[in-house]
Amino acid sequence: MRKTEFLELLAFHIGPLSIGATVLTTWLVMALLTGLAWFGTRRLSVATPSRLQTMLEGALLAMQHAIEAVAPGYAAQLLPFIGSLWVFIAAANLIGLVPGLASPTDNLSLTVALAMLVFFSVHWFGIRIDGFKAYLRHYLDPNPLFLPFHLLGEITRTLTLAIRLFGNMMSLELAALLVLLVAGFLVPVPLLMLHIVEALVQAYIFGMLALVYVAGALQFHELKRED
């Protein structure tokens, strides 16, 4: 059982690539976010910022401070990736509230894609900052016997990252759909309000976990530098 999506009507294929509702909704979210960013930053003022600019600056500084608290000194490097995760997942989760649209995050392909990006970004930042050999060496720390557990942890945390977001968002939409079918019109409204909270919480959790994973890789570098 799945919510009926308007954008499914626009699905098409480009060769082997299937452009379904999830991808189209993602493009819509990307367009909205980019449009909002462009609109909010087209007339930036240092002395007299507009309300929208103030809101954007506040959101950006909040994300920067959150990253700085977990990975001190790396906020500038991590902000584009982690901030985009927060913004995109929150927007993708919330767009499901629009009638005729479904959250793209209730699609396992998207959550796995994001989880894989987090997986690769952890190694990317680790290798970039630590160096290839030094970064790989931490898998042997404190003992080479821990290597399988390290590898298992890398895979499982990536899977849980993808499954957690997918499961929460899918179950939330499913629950709302079930309530709508059973109880009727307007009854799922409180559930939709819960959807808002859940959408923001899940975005925060996903981004924060990604940040913690990346910070874990950086922490090894920091510990080594302290030694």
Partner: peptide, 27 residues
């Protein structure tokens, strides 16, 4: 869906670039 997975990964990277260009840098 592997094609969706690949497109979503690409979409996100494009979004990162767009937000970096239109949001993070100017703000």
């Amino acid at each position: 869906d592997w094609s969706t997975l690949a497109l979503e990964a690409l979409n996100f990277l494009v979004l990162v670039w767009l937000l970096r260009h239109f949001f993070y840098r100017p703000v």
